[in-house]
Amino acid sequence: MTGIIKKIISSILTIAVVACLVFMAFSLIPGDPAVAKLGTQATPEKLAALRETMGLNKSVPARFVEWIAGVVRGDFGTSYSYSMPVTKLIADKLPVTVILTLYSFILMIAVSVPLAIVAARYENSALDKTIQILSQITMSVPPFFGGIIITLIFGLGLKLFAPGGYVSYSVNAGRFLGYMFWPALAIALPKVAMAFSLLYGGLTTEKRKDYARTAYSRGNSTKDVFYKHLLKNACIPVITFFGMALADMIAGSIVIEQVFSIPGLGRILLTSIQNRDYPVVEAIIVCIAVLVIVSNLLVDILYRVIDPRIITED
């Protein structure tokens, strides 16, 4: 238990450090956002007035204290280009990215676990070999190209969904989830292949151990031996990968949003990078950092639940 508390405290510290680094990085960038907004032809009076409203005339440490105080209250300042509070700007886009990430994570587990069990059960069969080759190829497909292929085959070819026909979750949750299945699949596929090969390696090692034979001798069916006995032990090394995959999927969803025209964090992050709208970029990076750190924390806790031996090592 103390191990988990320690982890939570260090996660909070990490988030704080990341927030500081992000602010420092963006305040070191040369160039004046006021000039960028008004253009080089602007009168000095107008520039000074804008700097005043943007809070740029204060020293960097003073702005930092103000920014951090705001972030703690969930206030990320005002966007340069949209002239509205950043928090309001990203509040309804954050859930889209989070749902897409979780959707792909669930798909990854739902596909890779049964696939690995089938392949490991019929080791060296034609079915096993086919799955192996397919997984090796899938592993090399980057999600954004996977997304294009999915659009081409299932969207334009088979007409199973309308490319670009995104429906907001607040309008129609069912159609939202139906549309999000395809981008989630594009993100999940390469991860499915990697999770598959790790699980497969674990299962084929575990199934040769004595306890597996004992489980059979006690009258368990093959399905029970794999799902109830082998899977848990084969999962332990794979959980670290699941954690990294979850973090990777957050990055993946930012890219895949562009393929499927989904208005999530990714699109606003990209336009803000191009417009040099730093308050928005800072806010989104901090949000993503929190997502990554929290997902790492959850994986760590899961690890302890599945493999209690780890506690004695603390």
Binding site: F26, A247, I250, A251, I254, L269, I273, I285, I288, V292
Partner: peptide, 18 residues
């Protein structure tokens, strides 16, 4: 470890933004 826990694509995205 903190850097490593972030997907490299995201890190690179931050550096490009800067």
């Amino acid at each position: 470890d903190v850097m490593f826990s972030f997907p490299s694509l995201l890190l690179a995205l931050v550096f490009v933004a800067v």
